[in-house]
Amino acid sequence: MNRAAESPAKDLLLQLSDVTVSHGDRSTLESVSMRLSRREIVTVIGPNGAGKSTLIKTALGIIQPAKGEVNRIANIQIGYVPQSVSLDPTLPLTVERFLRLGTAVNDATVKEMLATVGVEKLQTASMHRISGGEMRRVLLARALLKKPDLLILDEPTAGVDIAGQNDIYTLIGSIRDQYQCGILLVSHDLHIVMAATDRVLCLNRHLCCSGSPEHVREHPEYLAIFGGNPADRIGIYRHQHDHHHDLHGDVCDHG
């Protein structure tokens, strides 16, 4: 079942081996193994409560696994893009200052980075007054300023409309090319993943299945929505389940 482990050994950045994470007596991740290499985009999909955030936090080292091993290459620079930040209203903070909290950089670098993610006009805006979509781009800018080897994104398109999702996926694809980094992203959407994704991991506490997404160039439903070009960036992942789940998400048989 662990076809997820198919990844070029060269340039390996991150490896999870048989990782189990427990919360009380209930496990949130069961024997998950995965590898991620430089210039590779891996998308983790799964329903709510599937352990996607737990997987990310384990990869980041925030959560320690009860069993198994998490290996990152030495001196790895990780850029983490959480879903959002919830700031206390008493803390005055501009976008620019927020970026500088992560990495000490000069004014020109801040401007350049904000332009890269498409929010250059927000440099002096208050972090309290930017929209959810703008927040995602600002968080991405903060991660990119670290010149990451590995970029980890938690639901980069949650709450973003479908055209906006396209923009963000385009941006992520170009970041991979520009920074030559490995990218791990998580999506709650079971059906739409980024077309540039090299591998999809389907997670439901354990790894259900994995593989490369199909291109949807010719899929009439998506062509109807996007016209020609934008659909290039969206792929459909067809599940090839070899087992079923009961109501708790536990595997109840192997087909």
């Binding site: 980041l60 959480p82 930040v85 927020f98 909290l101 992560g102 903060r142």
Partner: peptide, 17 residues
């Protein structure tokens, strides 16, 4: 000052830093 500010804004981001 700076690390505490960072952890107030987002503890996980501060940890990753």
């Amino acid at each position: 000052w700076r690390p505490v500010l960072s952890s107030i804004v987002h503890p996980d981001l501060a940890f990753v830093d």
